[in-house]
Design a protein around this nucleic acid. Sequence first.
RNA 1: UCCUCUGUAGCUCAGCGGUAGAGCGGGUGGCUGUUAACCACUAGGUCGUUGGUUCGAUCCCAACCGGAGGAGCCA
Length: 455
Amino acid sequence: MARTRIAEILKQDTPPGTVTVMGWVRTKREAKSFSFLEINDGSCLANLQVVADRGVSGYDESVVAARTGASVKVEGTVVPSQGQGQRWELQATKVELLGAAAEDYPLQKKGHSMEFLRGISHLRPRSNLFGAVFRMRSRMAYAIHRFFQERGFVYVHTPIITGSDCEGAGEMFRVVTMDGEAAKSGAEEFFGKPTYLTVSGQLEGETFASALSDIYTFGPTFRAENSHTSRHASEFWMIEPEMAFCDLAGDMDLAEEMIRHLVSDALESCAEDLAFCNQFVDKGLVERLQLVRDQAFERISYTDAVELLRASGETFEYPVEYGLNLQSEHERYLTEKHFRRPTTVYDYPKEIKPFYMRRNDDGKTVAAMDLLVPGIGEIVGGSQREERLEVLRANLAEHGLEESHYDWYLDLRRYGTVPHAGFGLGFERLLMFVTGVANIRDVIPFPRTPGAAGF
RNA sequence: UCCUCUGUAGCUCAGCGGUAGAGCGGGUGGCUGUUAACCACUAGGUCGUUGGUUCGAUCCCAACCGGAGGAGCCA
């Protein structure tokens, strides 16, 4: 099945001669004595225009029968195109229909609504937009690994099934066997105790940072929250670096450097797909990404942010007050109106943050940080972790958590504790930011949300 | 979990208390180095479901189901 990818053909400066191309028919324009077929194989956004004369081998059985959606194999010669709109085209010598498409093939040449395409998750990657999005998803995953590997971080696979039942990061899915009776009684738990799908690999990540210094995780994460928004899914991917011998400042530095690196990589290596997103999804996308790449990020303490918001004269639906969480509208004001750039907010009141964050010397705040980006809001959340055993125990007590559940976590503080810090990056949030796509369901191949787990 | 909007042809939508229409898509024919091609003809809908109001409901009311957006929570 030797073939040449369309991306390979289209990037040539001189025609590559005779090739065999395989792909799916995006559209066909038929004339009396010949046809134009536009073929896409997913290797790039652009189609390859095939010119098939009526005399071509297999014309009646293949070219005539090849409707939009059909798969074909085309042999021919790459030649400069006589028409506008493409540099090269394939002058076919032989066309073979690999798989016909029934006439009810749902993807039309016209634009479809995102809602409709969500209903056909198995076919939507054949559309321009979803092809672009999922090529970029792949590229961003690669760029993330490269970013960390080049800096000496070790990739750690933290467990997907976990026994930590109070990580404080949201509602969890319970793991049970198919035998309902045993699950109900609890007597015959498969693992001997209740288990859940992970909501974060952070605590496990800390154990490896306490051995290998700089580590990161990159894997699926599950939240059983019944949220119905464009930014939440029940299953998503998260990147969680954790660094020993690192404080909050170093943590913020890394998060900002990472975001800038990924945006820069997208601009460089996904130019064609980005241009498409810029035209059809978000007209300001490329310009915004260029600003992120080129400008310094803003950094402001929670305390100063609250003051700034109160002094802004802006009327908010929810009150701005020290001790309250910043609302979406507040974050939006900071990144979209006031600073107009990615902004890191740090040093939050201890009452609104989890037990593991490091208590600051002021006694009121913890060394936490959220990196906010325009259009999305929080994309990174992180902190310096509490490395002092007694302070951590006090935090557990203050949060009403049972110390015995955190034995192994406390051990890290008993045996050679070190200052350390880390953060979590929502992979899909990053993709939304980088593609301009407004709904998280449209950057996940088969999204899982409350009430929806199709395919 | 709460609030709001929405459900008419394959898709996007219009419509109206008297049982339905457009554009695109599909099919057929024609035409052209075409490119969201063009022209003509044509097929296709128990108007989300179940009740209620009414002489009569796709239209009004209620419940339910599905979809979307927002809030909260977070990534």
